[in-house]
Amino acid sequence: MSGMVALLTLGEVLGVAGTPVGTPLRTATTLRLSTAGAEATVAIGVRRLGLTSAWVGTVGADEIGTRVLRDLRAESVGTSCARRVADVPTGFLLRDHRTPDFTSVSYYRRGLAGSRLGAADVRAAFAAVEAVDMLHVTGITPALSESCHEAVLAAVRIAAERGVTVSFDVNYRSTLTSRATARSVAAELLGQVDILFAGDDELDLLTDETDPRAAAASLLARGPSEVVVKRGAAGAIAVTRGSEPHEVAGHRVVATDVIGAGDSFVAGYLAARHRGADLATRLAWGTTCAACTVGTTGDWAGLPDLDEIERRALPEVTFR
C-alpha cells in the first residue's frame, strides 16, 4: 500500500453463510456463502464510486480468511496491511433469513482472528501510505477486544496528527457490548471525530435529545463538524456547523435484505463528500446506496458504481 488513499478503514470481516430469503435455517438445504463487515462494506462502497480505499484487519490462516481477502481484492480494496494469524480461525456468522425484513444472526467470533487487531497494525498501515484523506472507524471494533479498542484510539490519534478527516459510525451491536459501554466509547471518541454517523435508535448513546434534528444540532457542540442521523426507510438528516439541518426521504424499494444498508449509506455519503458534493447530494448518494443494498442480497453485493449512482441519486449531482 503506497501513495494516496482516499479512505482507510479498519475492523473485522467475517465469513457468512445465509439461508435463501424466506427459508428458516432449521429446514434450509442450501446456504449462500459470502463475507461481511461494516468497515469493509464502506471500503467497497467508496471504491465502486471511484475512490481508492484500503482495509486494515486480521484474519485467520484458513479458507475463510482467504475468502475475505479475495473478496476485498476483487473489489480493488487495498489489503497489503491485513495480517493473517495462524493460531485461531477467522470469525463466522450464520444468517437465518426468514423474511426480507427480518433476519436473525448467530455469531462465532469471540476471541477469534478479528479480535487480534492491535495498535501496531494501525501504525504500520499509516506508515505504509504517503497520504490518507479520510479514516473511517465504527463502534463495533472497540467492542471486539481491548487490543481492537487500542487500535481504534491509535488510528484516530494518528489521523488527528496528520490532519486526516475522521469519520465515526456508532454502529451499536448489542451482541458485543452493553449500551453503557458503547456510550462510554462514543463519548471517548466524540471530541476527536469530524463526521459522526448515528442511527436514530442510537441517539440516546450520545445525547439526551430525542428529536433527531435537535440531537444532530446539539452534537455539533461536542466536537464533530458534521453530524448525520440515519433513519432507515425514513431517510436521513445531516447538519454541519453554520447550517440548518438538511433532511431527505428514503427511497421506496422492495426489501430483499436490509442488512448492510447503514454502512452502504456511509459509503455513498463519504464518496460524495470527498468529491466535493453539497450536503443534499451527499445525503442523496447515501440513501441511494442504502436502497441498492436493501433491494439485493448481501451486505455489499448491490452497491452501485459511479455511473449507476449518477443516474439514480436525487437531486442532480452538484460538485463544488
Rank of each mutant, 00 (worst) to 15 (best):
L33K: 06
T210M: 11
L306T: 08
Y108R: 11
H149R: 10
G18Y: 06
H251L: 13
W55Q: 01
E244I: 12
V152P: 00
R67V: 13
G298H: 02
G268T: 04
A217G: 03
A271C: 14
L205F: 08
G118S: 15
T293L: 12
D257Q: 14
L283P: 05
T27H: 15
D257F: 14
L176G: 03
R123E: 15
L303G: 02
A272V: 06
G286T: 00
L7N: 08
V164C: 10
P212T: 02
E316I: 01
G18N: 12
A236I: 01
L283V: 01
S184T: 10
F102T: 11
R73F: 06
V248L: 10
S34D: 15
H97P: 03
D71Q: 08
L283K: 09
S178E: 10
D200R: 01
V227M: 03
R98Q: 08
E39S: 14
R312D: 02
L93F: 08
V105P: 06
A280F: 00
S104L: 10
R109E: 11
L203I: 08
H274M: 12
R48N: 01
Y107C: 06
L135R: 00
T41K: 12
G262R: 05
A119W: 09
P224I: 10
A17K: 08
L189M: 10
T210A: 13
P304M: 02
M134C: 11
L72C: 00
I140V: 15
L219G: 00
T293D: 06
V59R: 02
D204N: 05
S243R: 07
L306Q: 00
L7P: 03
L303A: 00
P20R: 06
L112E: 07
R48C: 01
V129I: 14
L93M: 11
F319W: 14
A214P: 06
P89N: 05
G199H: 03
D305Y: 04
A233T: 13
G286K: 05
V152T: 07
P142L: 04
A233N: 09
A238S: 13
F126Y: 13
R162A: 09
V317F: 12
R179Y: 05
D208Y: 12
P89H: 04
A74K: 04
S34C: 11
T293V: 15
T175A: 15
A159M: 09
E244T: 13
G15D: 05
G232E: 01
A221F: 09
F197R: 00
G22H: 08
S178P: 11
E161W: 10
S264E: 02
G114T: 07
H149P: 04
L219C: 04
A128N: 07
L144D: 01
A82S: 10
D263W: 00
G223H: 10
L94H: 02
V266K: 02
A271Y: 04
T288E: 07
R95Q: 11
R123T: 15
A17I: 06
S76I: 04
T287F: 00
D121R: 03
G22I: 05
T318E: 14
Y107S: 11
D87W: 11
R109G: 15
L112W: 03
G286V: 01
C81Q: 14
R320C: 02
R273D: 05
R84K: 15
V85C: 13
P100S: 11
L14V: 06
F319H: 12
V166F: 03
A86R: 15
S225E: 12
G191Y: 07
R213N: 08
F319K: 12
M4E: 13
V229C: 01
V254W: 06
S178V: 05
